[in-house]
């Protein structure tokens, strides 16, 4: 196996103001399925194209935003390995018991320089609906809504992006696929632990622990167009798009869930290999990097977060 250690984004736990509205949005519009509701009221969702127990966790709260981003490791001993690496780096690591989220094994957690909580785990039960593995059809259950195929990545905002870059490279073995440098230093980074152009990204922002968006992968540009039709039909608050990112080359729409958390539908994007050099952007071309067709940032990109 070529991919070792931290393998991919596994789940993200987000806070919602209105749980029934959030469930309707993520199941009927994004196209996910509800797996279960936990005893503490958290709701667990997945795409029918994902095998693992869940990928999206909704927690009812008085403020919107993100609680934690979870990454799945290849094997259980990876958790011990990264606990040592993170501790040696100088950050405190805590432990979450198996079953704290239904279907998931033990997790380790720590806070990164931008103020976000990152968790690692290795074990997940599978849940239905999921793809068949013998003579599989392209889908087992007919896709609905925007037909999201998986939770793809998140973009998080906080002050110390340089600190995150150093930590993710040195302690977690991520690589930086792309970065934006401003005259006063690194402004944004797109980090990968596998073969996607990004598995998590960070942009510099004065307040810590902010959520810019949670992204769902769609099949192609045609699917993005269908998602846009759904946004208008159901009067979902849109931010920007359909358009394309210069950075990652992904095709995209930004829009908001019923609690004001930004979501993205993402299709395409290039394949990353560990020998590919970091692509860099400067102040003069950052508009094209973020929104390739508009060639400038919109008002909300740097100021609207949850």
């Amino acid at each position: 196996m070529a991919i070792t250690g931290i393998m991919r984004p596994g789940f993200i736990q987000i806070r919602v103001l209105d749980m029934p509205a959030a469930i309707e949005f993520y199941t009927k519009r994004i196209g996910l399925h509800q797996v279960t509701e936990g005893p503490d009221g958290r709701v667990y969702l997945k795409s029918a194209d994902e095998f693992d127990h869940h990928s999206i966790v909704l927690r009812r709260a008085d403020s919107a935003g993100v609680d934690a981003a979870g990454f799945k490791c290849v094997k259980d001993s990876d958790l011990d390995h990264y606990e040592k690496r993170v501790t040696d780096y100088g950050f405190a690591v805590d432990h979450v018991k198996a079953g704290e989220q239904p279907g998931l094994g033990r997790r380790i957690g720590f806070t990164i320089p931008t103020g976000h909580r990152i968790e690692l785990y290795a074990e997940s039960e599978q849940s239905d609906p999921k793809p068949r593995t013998h003579n599989p059809d392209v889908w087992e259950l007919e896709p609905h809504g925007m037909a999201a195929r998986r939770f793809d990545h998140s973009l998080l905002y906080g002050p110390d992006v340089q600190g995150n870059l150093d930590f993710f490279e040195k302690a977690l073995d991520f690589r930086c696929a792309e970065r934006v440098d401003m005259p006063d230093g690194v402004f944004a980074i797109w980090m990968t632990c596998g073969m996607k152009a990004h598995d998590i990204a960070f942009v510099k922002y004065p307040e810590p622990n902010k959520l810019h968006h949670v992204a769902f992968e769609l099949e192609n540009w045609q699917s993005i167009g269908h998602a846009a039709d759904i946004l208008t039909r159901y009067d979902i608050s849109i931010d920007l798009g359909p358009t394309r990112h210069g950075i990652t080359r992904g095709q995209t729409i930004y829009f908001f869930d019923p609690s004001g958390n930004r979501c993205e539908t993402f299709a395409g994007g290039y394949t990353y290999y560990p020998d590919i050099p970091t692509r860099t952007w400067d102040e003069t071309q950052v508009g094209k990097g973020i929104f390739y067709y508009e060639r400038q940032l919109n008002d909300a990109f740097l100021s609207v977060v949850s």
Binding site: L17, A64, G65, S237, D239, F256, D257, P258, S259, G260, N261, R262, D299, A300, S303, V304, V305, S306
Partner: peptide, 14 residues
């Protein structure tokens, strides 16, 4: 400048 509009759903405060 322009009307301050963000998420339109109560999350961002703009």
């Amino acid at each position: 400048r322009r009307l301050p509009v963000g998420c339109r759903r109560g999350g961002c405060g703009v």
